[in-house]
Design a protein around this nucleic acid. Structure first.
Lengths: 337, 337
DNA sequence: CTTCGTTAAGACAGCGCTACCTTACGAGGA
DNA sequence: TCCTCGTAAGGTAGCGCTGTCTTAACGAAG
């Protein structure tokens, strides 16, 4: 009955694996980490011993010894938005099997809250961080720089040096919507937006720029409130009172568009007869709502997948040629336009 | 230039806090953990020193020394379901400020996948686990028992000994829907369900039991496929072909009901004129869809909040009187019935 | 035959914290 | 007055792993 037994976890340790394999502890450690300076014969012995004992490395010990955790932080502006769920899930699916813990932080579209999360999560020394977009406080930026933590930005793109980003062009998506509505013969066009984050604003800019290029004025109704189905109905109603002649609306997301469709239905306003609707994100419901909603389908799942793989490459110290991964988007034309 | 400096993290350590406070390291440790055997004067000195240095405990070291992590695992059957997002967020909001990491596992409604997650997550020695319902593999059960990990079950209730649960009665909810439709004069009633997990089945049982008590037969259309808006439309269409006289449908969730509403609209079937719809969960959209959907509002946010607090109490070693927390539910009657 | 460089394996010493045991000290009873 | 006892503080020894340095082994070059 050894004294130290009282504190041990009872799980097999690296020392036991090493003993069983007949090598030193450090050799076992290297073998299990696939460090190439280990003789292949010894390495396979170690792996066998590890399997035989059902050895699982203790992440705390590993983290303490190496000063590096095995966790990756993902910060998203919302969980209530289906969009980010799919991205998160894809990230999980890539990183979990590689042994990384994925820590999710929701900053509720608040830069201050994001800063707080960054501060808190840096304390646990994550080995990488996946961020949404580029819009954050200076303090956040400094924290990230000072900690030299590996990071990948999602949803938006940049060509800046040493910055890795995976996403698509929000401006271009807005412009595509504008050109689509113009092609449909609509001339009295509006951008209706809520939850004015950087991406929503960029979409609107792309939309308005494309209209301007065609010599068409753009109406705009943008409120900072959180986006919701109910708000979509309200905003549509308000826009219609101000500009009864509007004949095409680009909503910054599908939720608003859904709400507007319901409101139009209640008011007996034909869609697309009197006014065409285009949403953004292409949520599952958009393919079924009456009328089916035209929307920009965004590659949110692929964004997560590629961002996670990029992070893995960074963590492996690989040489990255493509700092920017543009996954594009797709305009899905349906009944509403 | 001390040799050990090369491996240190550079962050202030407990030893430095102790030195600044003029106490031993272990006293500082106890003071910061609010262990009552520390003199209040010393304790406040330690807290001051800690603040002055910007000390943040190293979770890895703490975990290694105490063989206990500061992380709580939450296993949910889906992230695509808004329902669980709200629960997760509430859990986060309670546990994060207390210094716990919340690790999310999504088992995609698969008992096998849940078992795998339990196995993997137990390796990192979480200090607690929050589970959805009671339906799991025997191996999962054994793993949980063998590891003696503190756990709280969510969404369903049980009176079993030593089992903590937070939720509401799925059966009762189903029964309430049945009585509501009966009170509306409907007699040809059906339960339409997908993604047949234990809770969906219980809801249906409550529904059918209440109908049986009223001497009314229940129709049923249940498929194991994942639930979706599109499937709701399909199932409604199929049910209507088989039983054109159906005049009231209870859908196992709002998504199916939404899809059915769209399908009814396409087919020109008046709701609730010809057939009344009732959903489950009361998603935000249900208050806006045309017609507005009658639904059971479930306390998913409160489930998360209470489950997290219960876990905190368990972790603190508190004496728990109420093993079962019934948060109830609410029938929200709207236009569709 | 010696020297050197190179590579593989091991020894060692922590990483930062907490469990456990010991010591110091004052209060209270004999 | 002495001795026990309870309490608060400290000393010590790891928790399980990996970074760094050292050694051993071996072949090539001089």
């Amino acid at each position: 009955m050894r004294k130290e037994a009282s504190r041990a976890t009872g799980r097999p340790t690296l020392a036991e694996v090493a003993q069983l394999a007949g090598v030193s502890q450090i050799t076992a450690s290297r073998a299990l980490r696939d460090i190439p300076t280990v003789d292949p014969v010894l390495a396979s012995k170690v792996r066998e011993a590890s399997k035989a004992l059902g050895y699982v490395p203790n992440p705390a010990a590993r983290m303490l010894a190496s000063a590096r955790s095995q966790s990756v932080v993902v910060l998203v502006p919302a969980l209530s938005n289906q969009l980010f769920i799919e991205t998160l899930e894809a990230i999980h699916n890539v990183l979990r099997p590689r042994g990384y813990d994925v820590l999710i932080g929701n900053f509720h579209y608040s830069r201050e809250e994001e800063e707080e999360l960054i501060r808190n999560y840096l304390a646990i020394q994550p080995c990488g961080i996946l961020l949404t977009g580029f819009d954050r406080t200076d303090a956040s930026r400094r924290l990230l720089e000072a900690n030299k933590i590996r990071r990948v930005h999602m949803m938006e793109l940049t060509n800046a040096e040493d910055v890795f980003s995976v996403g698509f062009s929000q401006e271009d998506a807005g412009a595509v919507v504008a050109r689509h509505l113009l092609a449909r013969g609509r001339r009295r066009l509006a951008y209706v937006a809520a939850q004015l984050d950087a991406r929503v604003i960029r979409r609107g800019e792309g939309f308005k720029r494309a209209l301007a290029e065609a010599g068409v004025d753009a109406l705009e109704l943008a409120v900072p409130d959180p986006s919701s189905v109910g708000l979509g109905g309200e905003l549509f109603d308000r826009l219609l009172r101000q500009h009864p002649d509007v004949d095409g609306i680009f909503f910054c997301n599908d939720d608003l568009a859904h709400g507007a469709i319901f409101e139009a239905q209640r008011q007996g306003i034909p869609v697309p007869g009197r006014v065409a609707f285009v949403g953004f994100n292409d949520l599952p419901m958009s393919a079924h709502i009456v009328p089916r909603l035209t929307s920009i389908h965004t590659p949110r799942e692929d964004v997560g997948k590629h961002a996670a793989h990029l992070m893995l490459a960074l963590l492996a110290g690989a040489e990255i040629r493509e700092r920017t991964i543009d996954l594009g988007f797709e305009l899905v034309v349906r009944e509403s336009s």
